[in-house]
Design a protein around this nucleic acid. Structure first.
Lengths: 209, 209
DNA sequence: GTCTATAATGAGATAGAC
DNA sequence: GTCTATCTCATTATAGAC
């Protein structure tokens, strides 16, 4: 918990916005400096190199993302309600920062080493035990319901992947969807509202035995 | 249908690989030249600028993608079989070029003007009428089944988005999924095999009334 | 800590010989 | 068409004054 100066924080915030907007390779140190309202020299003063800054931004953003998703997964609810709460909570959260998922997935693709870094940083930290417990709780519920015949049996990891896919994809594919469906920004917002309502039903239906 | 020389084609292929691997901003003309086993000057000789080359690659790749997806959507089958065939066909096709979806979505994000260019290039060309017909045929089936009560009513665009999400996402999020599920490359291949089997059931189940 | 000025390098692009 | 050599400019990064 190092005490970051106000300026340092401003630069970090600016860098976050620019990296998310342009991607790491497309980002320019000058643009970051301008957006933070400082000179380029100062950006280097605080973060040495673009590479270091990029890594810092990615880890910060990724940790924040994990930190906002984990509570959604950790609620002590029956599986059905948990899924509904998760979908709604995720969509509402990411709407505030719609380009974030695309940035993170692209980064993960082009710098897998940062992912492992993040993994090591997150594991062994406070939320880790809680995270494990939450996931196990979910898997246990899947197993129970499958056994009881109240839910169609399916591999837990496929269910995880499906829920993630259905939640994340609209944000990653936004321009394509807007073009395909002929939506302006307001139309896309309406599409997300509709989705927020429809998606939980879709998923829960898929799980009926 | 211009007759592209062998060299030109080699450069284009190399550029395609490099752009997909690094993203447009991260790609280097030198790397493309090396991969095509020519000098950088020759790359410029054929394609003038990096910008022009990037656009050419994107349009080519995107058209090829549309061209391979359209037939999957155009099969004259009942909706249920169409979905199954589509899922399996898509997964099998993209396995050959697993980084392609990520590249295309990132490009669409950062160069929306290319998307429109593509749209204009594809519309008004041979497959366009067929594409419209195929989509209408699908929407009509959805409407019929909803009315008849043999399918749960839901907005067609949400169903499209869901199928796309479930098919595309694993490829876009591959590194994250591998880390989360602890999969090496062979493990990920097994995950895709499993998915190929499970996904059609998941979707069709979600559509039961 | 913050700036101005500038160095150092990286990367796209062209000239001209063959 | 293809190469070598080179130019030009953008971009990262540092030096040094304040």
């Amino acid at each position: 918990m190092e005490t970051t100066t106000d300026t340092e924080q401003r630069i970090l915030d600016a860098a976050t916005r620019v990296f998310i907007r342009r991607g790491t390779a497309g980002a320019r140190m000058q643009e970051i400096a301008a957006e933070a309202e400082v000179t380029q020299a100062l950006v280097h003063y605080y973060f040495r190199t673009k590479e270091a800054l990029a890594e810092r931004v990615f880890l910060t953003v990724a940790r924040r993302t994990v930190g906002s998703i984990l509570p959604l997964l950790s609620q002590p609810l029956p599986l059905e309600q948990l899924i509904e709460q998760f979908v709604v909570g995720y969509i509402d959260a990411v709407r505030q920062a719609p380009f974030l998922p695309g940035y993170m997935l692209a980064e993960a693709q082009q710098h897998p080493e940062r992912l492992e870094l993040l993994f090591n940083a997150v594991v062994g930290v406070v939320p880790s035990a809680a995270a494990q417990a939450a996931l196990q709780h979910i898997e246990q519920q899947i197993a129970e319901r499958s056994a009881a015949g109240t839910m169609r049996a399916m591999p837990a990891r496929q269910l995880f992947a499906n829920v993630a896919a259905l939640c994340v994809f609209p944000f990653v594919a936004r321009p394509v969807l807007q073009l395909a469906f002929g939506l302006d920004d307001a139309g896309f917002a309406a599409f997300l509202d509709e989705r927020r309502r429809e998606l939980p039903t879709f998923i829960l239906n898929a799980l009926r035995p």
